[in-house]
């Protein structure tokens, strides 16, 4: 199964992938931290988009599409990118480390934790890429 980004179906599909992908389950087995994404309007995205994932020990405990920012006031990481940059990552046109190192993907949270867990981050992106068949 796969889905169009961005959509609630896509996020549900990603949740399912993260819970069933053995490689991710293994690599992310020590990860503890939820993610709140802000996607800034650009191109086909006309207004800001938010989504939320709660990642815990190699599984995804919860997702929410278009939550209000105050619904999750203290996520472990807040990630922000423009629509074109996030879709470039999802389609493999932009290396996720390039996005982080050039601040095209802005990161707020513990950099210490992030740097310790780069393999988990990269495998999370792999899963997201694998469920993305089409971009809006």
């Amino acid at each position: 199964m796969s889905a169009i980004f961005p959509s609630e179906e896509w996020l549900k599909e990603l949740e399912s992938k993260l819970n069933s992908d053995e490689r991710y389950n293994e690599i992310a087995r020590n990860w503890e931290g939820d993610l709140f994404f802000f996607i800034e309007p650009e191109g086909n995205l006309k207004e800001q988009l938010t989504f939320y994932l709660d990642l815990w020990h190699g599984t995804c405990r919860k997702v929410e599409y278009k939550p209000r920012a105050d619904a999750y006031p203290n996520p472990a990481f807040t990630l922000s990118a423009t629509y074109n940059n996030i879709t470039a990552i999802l389609t493999g046109k932009m290396n996720p480390m390039t996005a982080m190192m050039t601040t095209k993907l802005k990161v707020k949270g513990s950099m210490s934790y992030m740097m310790r867990n780069v393999p988990t981050v990269l495998d999370f992106v792999r899963c997201a890429q694998e469920v993305t068949t089409e971009i809006l």
């Binding site: 190192m101 050039t102 993907l105 802005k106 950099m111 210490s112 867990n117 780069v118 393999p119």
Partner: peptide, 23 residues
């Protein structure tokens, strides 16, 4: 100040990339 790499350097120091380099 907003740059991700600068944040890493500030929070974790230049040795912050050790895990990534080893990986």
């Amino acid at each position: 100040k907003e740059d991700n790499e600068a944040k890493v350097m500030r929070e974790v120091g230049t040795a912050g990339a050790a895990n990534y380099a080893e990986y």
